[in-house]
Simulated scan of single mutants.
Amino acid sequence: MSGSDLQRMVDALAEEIGRSVAINDPSVHLKCASRHFGDEDEVRVHAVLQREGGSAAIGHMLSQGITEWTGPGVIPARADLHMRARLCRPIRCRGELLGLLMVIDPESLTEADIGAIEDSAAAMAALLYRDFVAEDEQRVAREGAVLELLCGTAERRTAAQRALGGQGWLRGGHHATVSVAEVVAPGKEKAQVEVALRVALEAVSRNRFAEFALAVDGNRGFLLQSAPAPKEHLRDQGAMVAKQVRDALGGSARCVVGIGTTAGGLAEAWISREQASTAARSARTLPDAADVVFWEELGVYATLLQIPDDRLTPRLLPAALNELIANDPHGRLVRTLAVYLDNAGSGPDAAAALHIHRTSLYYRLHQIEQITGLSLANGDNRLALHLGVRMMALLDDPS
């Protein structure tokens, strides 16, 4: 199918019902639109000019569950977005969502208008399905190769790089920076999470800063870019992905993004991916962690987070620290120990951070030494206890 075929059908429907008509792809990005009939709003105008209606509008539409609809429905208005209500008619064929037919101000549509929309949607489905088959085969092949490049064995990574280059994707990249987005969305279907991730990653990948490749695997999304980027640009990019996923899924959904360092070409992209995955794990695990975390900011957690989930239990803590925890029901001594070690064993600094007198601090430290049987004057003891205290923050990892 050529784009002109779909455009002619959209124009014909618009003239028949005397209304503006638009066709979006399943990610709510504009495929084609008719001329205006005086019913346009700011979201439609923006979409016609920019090929998408903006992340907030897309998030609002996706939050209605439109990608799961099997029949027409109404997307409510959003005054803060200057967005009027829309009739959304999913276009499906053989169960596949191929597009979203949109008409503004559904309440004024007549029965004849609705009938014309239904007839046109059926005809459009046949045209779109032919494109879908070819495009989906390419997408699946490309994403499969990207996943192998980032997550496969050495042999599979080499084959994936060759396959990507042979298809004209990511040829000759001398740099590779990987971001990993992970979604925790209780009560949401896998398909909803995947659509939200794909929409957010595709929005970022349309940026012309670098060549991008993306892949989605369940609740994880991978974004590979083949040019170095400023740190703040990467942080803003990750924040955009996290926000758009949250907006799309709503409720208690959370999306975190880990960002690896820039590797020396596609052959080393897996290194950046491993770093990014570790950073994402820290973002969803550590208390008060930001939604976007760089691997290079992890400090000692870059090492501690290499411990497999099934090994990360209280049994891994030093026996002396477990003894302290058992004898410190209110956690006062454990917190004192943590602050003291974080301040490099400086009594004045630790006392100031805890807002207590130095005499009280030294009394608590004496209690800690009695319970643990360890001298805090010993460097090895301080190191073991400090690592244990840091590890405690990881023990509630929900993965």
Rank of each mutant, 00 (worst) to 15 (best):
P308A: 09
A338T: 05
S277M: 15
G345C: 00
Y301P: 07
A276I: 06
I371L: 07
P348W: 04
V339A: 01
P329G: 01
E323C: 09
D328S: 00
L321Y: 00
G347A: 12
L312G: 04
A283G: 11
V334P: 11
A280K: 06
H355W: 08
P308K: 10
Y340F: 10
E369L: 01
G347M: 09
Y301C: 10
L298D: 12
P348E: 05
D349G: 01
L361F: 04
L304N: 03
A338C: 07
I356C: 11
H330K: 06
H330P: 11
I307K: 07
A263E: 12
L374G: 00
N343M: 04
G331N: 05
L333A: 01
S346H: 04
A353Q: 08
E296A: 15
F294Y: 11
G299P: 13
L321C: 02
A338R: 03
V292H: 13
A283P: 12
G264S: 13
L286I: 09
D328G: 02
S360I: 08
S272D: 05
P348M: 05
A326S: 09
I368F: 02
I356W: 12
P329D: 01
R281Y: 11
V300N: 03
N322S: 12
E323W: 04
T303V: 12
G299T: 04
T303N: 07
L266C: 06
Q367V: 01
T261V: 11
D291I: 04
S360M: 11
T359H: 13
A320I: 00
P287Y: 14
A302T: 06
N327F: 09
S346W: 03
L365D: 03
T261Q: 14
A320H: 00
E297M: 11
Y363S: 13
L298C: 10
S346T: 01
T313E: 06
L305G: 07
F294T: 08
D309W: 15
V300K: 01
D309P: 09
S272W: 07
R311P: 08
H366I: 00
L341M: 00
R358F: 10
